[in-house]
Simulated assay, not measured.
Amino acid sequence: MSKVAGRKKRIIGTTAALVAISGGAAFAYWTATGTGSATTKAGTTTGFEITGTATGGELSPGGPTQKVTFTVKNPGTGVQKVSKVDVKVANTDGTTWTSSTGCKTADFAIADYDFTAKELEPGGTATGTVTLQMVNSAENQDGCKGATVPLHFAAS
């Protein structure tokens, strides 16, 4: 029986040693931390190019209208969405217009706006239209005879 007991002790001792060694290896690890960064540059072209053309008869107080067709172009290198285009009688920088002869923004009305929002691929275009009319005012509008009426477009 002492042979069996000695043998059991060796098996138990060997097993315990193996468990201790393998158990210690299973829980060994390195700790680490790290950080990193990267930069890139996005394009700078984010504006639209807008052009317009008016067709129709000469404007006069309460007279005929002109249809203005405008085109919005994406000159950038990525897709840009144009949601709307505001059109008004104004200087090229959007400030209130008054001609040197006394014709002014209030002498005109813009109506019948037609434009659909659209995503524009690089170089892509979208078109829209508005109607321009000279209003019939209670004031003398002689200052508008032969005036060049500026339209300002603002896309967003």
Rank of each mutant, 00 (worst) to 15 (best):
G57A: 11
G47E: 04
G52D: 06
E49S: 14
Y29H: 15
G47A: 08
W30G: 09
A42G: 14
A32K: 14
G34T: 03
T33N: 15
T31L: 13
G47S: 05
A38K: 10
G52W: 01
F48V: 00
G57E: 11
T46C: 03
T35M: 08
F48L: 01
A38T: 14
G36N: 06
T35Y: 11
A54C: 02
I50E: 00
G47M: 06
G36H: 05
G34H: 04
A32H: 13
A54G: 02
T40V: 12
E49R: 11
T51M: 03
G34E: 01
A38P: 12
T40D: 08
G36V: 01
G43T: 02
G43H: 07
T53F: 04
T40Q: 05
T35E: 11
W30Q: 14
T40M: 10
A32P: 08
F48K: 01
T53W: 03
T46P: 04
A38N: 07
T33R: 15
G57V: 02
F48E: 00
A38M: 10
G57I: 04
T40S: 10
G36F: 01
T53L: 12
T55G: 05
G36P: 05
T45Q: 05
T35I: 09
T45E: 08
T45Y: 01
E49I: 13
T55C: 04
T46A: 09
A42I: 09
A42F: 07
A28N: 10
W30R: 14
A28L: 15
T39E: 08
T53D: 13
T51V: 05
T55P: 03
G57T: 05
G57R: 05
T51Q: 06
A38E: 08
E49M: 11
T46W: 04
K41R: 12
T31H: 15
E49K: 15
A42Q: 09
T31M: 14
S37Y: 07
G47D: 05
G36S: 07
G52I: 00
G52L: 00
T40I: 08
G47P: 07
T33M: 13
G43A: 05
A32N: 13
G57W: 07
A54V: 01
G43R: 04
G56C: 04
T45A: 12
T45C: 04
A54N: 02
K41Y: 09
K41E: 13
I50M: 00
T44Q: 12
T39K: 10
T31N: 14
T46S: 10
G56K: 00
T55M: 04
A54L: 03
K41H: 12
A42M: 07
F48W: 00
